[in-house]
């Protein structure tokens, strides 16, 4: 098996474990974070803070390399312009996130529960992603 697949598999597993340990696979925790006017659960801020505490210094260090370890170049977005697609896409994403309490990562990890509403959310997410790719 290709080493690149193994590192990607490991990264995915660590990510999924992080989502599960932090409780982000539970939409109730997400919606209670977003509900500042209700019974606020600040956990998500610590999850994001913990992740950024690693990526902000580590990405700076990694991107000083000329190439990644297993690829010829870094596949990092280079665009700098703030356009309507970016802002309207992000605005729509937030509305869907606030309705259901799932963003893509936690919804995928939570598929292993076999709960039908999670499967339905994921199927609809795939359909929405595909439709937007046609625009």
């Amino acid at each position: 098996m290709n080493t690149r697949f193994l590192t990607s598999l490991a990264a995915g597993a660590i990510f999924g474990l992080g989502l599960a340990i932090s409780g982000m696979i539970n939409p109730a925790k997400i919606l209670n974070f977003l509900d500042i006017a209700g019974a606020w659960d600040p956990t998500l801020a610590l999850v994001m803070g913990g992740a950024l505490a690693v990526t902000i210094p580590a990405f700076r260090w990694v991107l000083k390399r000329s190439t990644p370890v297993l690829d010829g170049r870094f596949h990092v977005p280079s665009r700098k312009d703030i356009d309507l697609r970016l802002v309207s896409g992000a605005a729509l994403f937030g509305i869907g996130w606030g309705l259901a309490g799932y963003c893509p990562g936690p919804a995928i990890t939570a598929l292993v529960t076999g709960l039908l509403p999670v499967l339905g959310f994921f199927a609809a997410l795939v359909a929405g992603n595909w439709l937007a790719s046609r625009l």
């Binding site: 690149r4 590192t7 990607s8 490991a10 990264a11 995915g12 660590i14 990510f15 474990l17 992080g18 989502l19 599960a20 340990i21 932090s22 409780g23 982000m24 610590l46 999850v47 994001m48 803070g49 913990g50 992740a51 950024l52 505490a53 690693v54 990526t55 580590a58 990405f59 990694v62 991107l63 390399r65 190439t67 990644p68 370890v69 297993l70 690829d71 170049r73 870094f74 596949h75 990092v76």
Partner: peptide, 18 residues
């Protein structure tokens, strides 16, 4: 703890696979 793991995962994928 979960957040640190997520940050570690993102770092691994960027460092190894770019």
């Amino acid at each position: 703890a979960g957040g640190l793991l997520i940050g570690l995962s993102a770092t691994l994928l960027l460092w190894a696979n770019g």
